[in-house]
Design a protein around this nucleic acid. Structure first.
Lengths: 197, 197
DNA sequence: TTGTTCATTGAATTATCGTTCAATTTATAT
DNA sequence: ATATAAATTGAACGATAATTCAATGAACAA
């Protein structure tokens, strides 16, 4: 009863993993079912035994991404700069140690920004804005004196751009060295007299 | 003689511009000739009167990108940190004021990193590595005492990731505020006692 | 062992894509 | 005005995509 079910679940995971790799490398349209199927070593027909459509396979990945450690950017009671230090450090550590996580990060970015994803995926991601809550935390840090002056939204863009770009680079080339969270945080820091080098 | 030729050249530019917009939004495979043609308001057949193939259209864009102000990262005699300040400031200013430039920046990144581009494009971009010369300049700055300690390659990745991510965000949403070059440079800076806030 | 269920394949099906082309309209030159 | 060249269209073509499906093989239950 479970002997075959376990095998089926394992196969499903393999498909998801191969799909993740291909989708971030070649995009949604650029990745064919045949690509994914042969990466796992099965016929294209069989893949539809595991997922009803290409879109649902992609959607499953995005759902996994939403549930992952991505969802942790919420207004906080923490000291703002400490929050960014912890966030950058945690995400970059994940990216360095879990290639799967880095790839998931890239996929989420692709799903959110690319116009080359099915409409159903876009719907699932409506209201998944990370910039607004980030800008709010930055505002607190500015009132606080720990975060530099400047448009909070622009600072949020700079912070997340750096992290996203690093994730993308590291996801593609897992052998490259990973920047440290502290560096990214210094992009926001107002004064560095207290900076630990 | 030139009356019609000018018109033809203008049309060609329109196609390139529409192609640039669509390619960065939907990727190479996700963008169809029909997409581009109807964005310019012509039949799909006519587009082949201006470009012999989809690949050559994309290749023309990438060639324009290589010739653009992208090609300015060379080992320098300048003080390293000053070089990064100037570079970041210049690129971000371009990105803010010339949406075309921001989009070109995104296209170059896509052409370089995505596996969803024709082989001919990949060939044209071999040896177009920006990390190695950047890391070299960073090494000088570290010897210099102006750039923080840490793996030079990782620092280069952080620097360019931030700029690339900003370009991507701004290319998609031209109304968002643009981060300042100084912020990105502070990611590299060792001490900020001399920092101008 | 035998009958049933699931896994798997490869060939059909339908749609869409890049590209070509013959035909038609529009502009230019003489 | 008329002949020539260029611009433009829409249909046709071949390739390839996603998806379906009938048929086969292997595992499981009885």
């Amino acid at each position: 009863m479970t002997a075959r079910d376990d095998q089926k679940e394992k196969r499903r995971q393999e498909i998801l993993f191969a799909g993740l790799n291909l989708f971030i490398q070649k995009g949604y349209s650029g990745t064919t079912i045949k690509d994914i199927a042969s990466a796992v070593g099965m016929s294209t027909g069989l893949l539809f035994h595991y997922f009803p459509s290409k879109e649902s396979l992609y959607l499953t990945l995005v759902t996994l991404g939403i549930e992952g450690p991505m969802s942790s950017v919420q207004p906080t009671r923490e000291e703002p700069l400490a929050f960014f230090e912890a966030t950058a450090e945690r995400i970059l550590t994940y990216i360095k140690e879990e290639p799967f996580f880095a790839k998931m990060f890239v996929l989420m970015h692709q799903a959110y920004y690319s116009a080359d994803v099915p409409a159903g995926v876009k719907e699932m991601l409506t209201g998944f804005d990370v910039y607004t809550p980030t800008a709010e935390i930055i505002r607190q840090g500015q009132a606080n004196g720990t975060i530099r002056d400047g448009n909070p939204l622009a600072l949020a863009i700079a912070f997340w751009s750096a992290i996203q770009g690093v994730a993308e680079t590291l996801a593609m080339h897992t052998n490259l060295p990973c920047p440290e969270g502290r560096w990214v945080t210094d992009l926001l820091r107002k004064e560095t007299w207290g900076k630990t080098i």
